[in-house]
Nucleic acid binder design. Structure first.
Length: 333
DNA sequence: CGATTTCA
DNA sequence: TGAAATCGG
């Protein structure tokens, strides 16, 4: 779900204009899908669904964001998760329980007629399941974009692809990719530039975090940053209750990481977690090739399959380079 | 969230 | 016309 590094990383975020973001972007697919699933909902928490009751929030999100990226000169490659490491199991189980509780609370809130509470719980009940992943991959393929399947964590794979120079930056809301060594992370890469916060609409713009700048500014090595994350808690270990990013930073500065772990996190295999961040399983067996979008295939999938309105899908596709295959698109109107 | 419509 | 409201599936 992401490491709570925000309190020490925040000052190294800098606004970045869209024009500076052209080129290949390694998108943390799980992060994007979760975002879509959790946010694209009705006020009572009901997600977008087709007539058969299948969730379509993520398909809407991918379609419109991807076509918009292409128009802006951004070439996204969606990086998906592979098999999680065994020591992530506790986190996975805990999240499952949180989701189940949220689902129950969602239903209860609906019965009481508490709409905003229902929405909040529905968000927490979101799950990026196999169906979401496979339908997302199908749509991404029809849009002509490459997909990379990580051997393990998608965030690690995306970071490695940027390190190697196959992509310019990672797109994610989470800071975990920095721990995996992503040289450049871009957050808030949302098209509308608006977000609802406490019922108010605030404007958000893309921001970048350059890992080397953050490490230099904090006077930390990447391993130190990982140690801070371990104290706070990561996807692979629970942190110390009462220790946030600021406190963890002080502990690292005083050289008390080992002692703190011994005392507060007994039984934690800290080396295993640190090693995983420093040298995670990644693959170089991928090919980044952008094909032509298949407008007819997209229309068939979304309109025939999931009850999307042809005019809206067609309009989104027109923004892409559908010069070829224009005839097939016209035939839908 | 992103697109579209409504409203001041 | 631009920001706010709401629609989409």
């Amino acid at each position: 779900m992401g490491v709570a590094l925000r309190d020490i990383i925040a000052e190294y975020r800098t606004p970045v204009p869209w024009e500076a973001l052209t080129g290949i972007a390694a998108v943390d697919a799980h992060n994007a899908l979760y975002q879509f699933l959790s946010i694209i909902r009705q006020p009572d928490g009901t997600p977008l669904m087709d007539q058969r009751g299948r969730v379509t929030s993520h398909l809407s999100g991918i379609l419109f964001r991807t076509t918009s990226f292409i128009e802006k000169g951004i070439r996204p490659v969606y990086v998906f998760d592979g098999t999680p490491p065994p020591f992530k199991q506790a986190t996975i189980e805990q999240r499952r329980q949180v989701r189940e509780q949220a689902r129950a609370r969602w239903e209860e809130a609906l019965i009481r007629g508490e709409i905003s509470e229902a929405y909040k719980q529905a968000r927490s009940a979101s799950k990026v399941d196999d169906e979401v992943i496979s339908t997302a991959k199908t749509l991404i393929g029809l849009l002509g974009l490459p997909v990379v399947k990580a051997p393990s964590e998608g965030e690690a794979q995306a970071a490695a692809m940027v390190s190697r120079g196959d992509a310019r930056y990672v797109v994610s809301q989470d800071y975990d990719t920095l721990l995996f060594g992503a040289p450049l992370l871009v957050r808030n890469l949302t098209v509308s530039g608006k977000r609802k916060l406490h019922g108010r609409t605030i404007s958000v713009s893309p921001e970048r975090i350059v890992l080397s700048e953050a490490l230099k500014g904090l006077d930390l090595s990447r391993e130190d940053l990982i140690r801070i994350a371990v104290l706070i808690g990561t996807d692979f270990n629970t942190g110390v209750r009462g220790i946030g990013a600021k406190t963890a930073l002080k502990i690292i500065r005083k050289g008390e990481f080992e002692a703190t772990v011994e005392e507060k996190l007994p039984g934690l295999d800290r080396e295993a977690v640190i090693d995983f961040f420093l040298d995670p399983p990644v693959t170089w067996e991928y090919s980044l090739s952008w094909g032509e979008p298949n407008p007819d295939g997209v229309m068939r999938m979304l309109c025939d399959g999931y009850d999307f309105a042809p005019d809206r899908v067609g309009k989104a596709l027109e923004g892409m380079n559908v010069r070829k295959g224009q005839k097939t698109l016209d035939s839908w109107f």
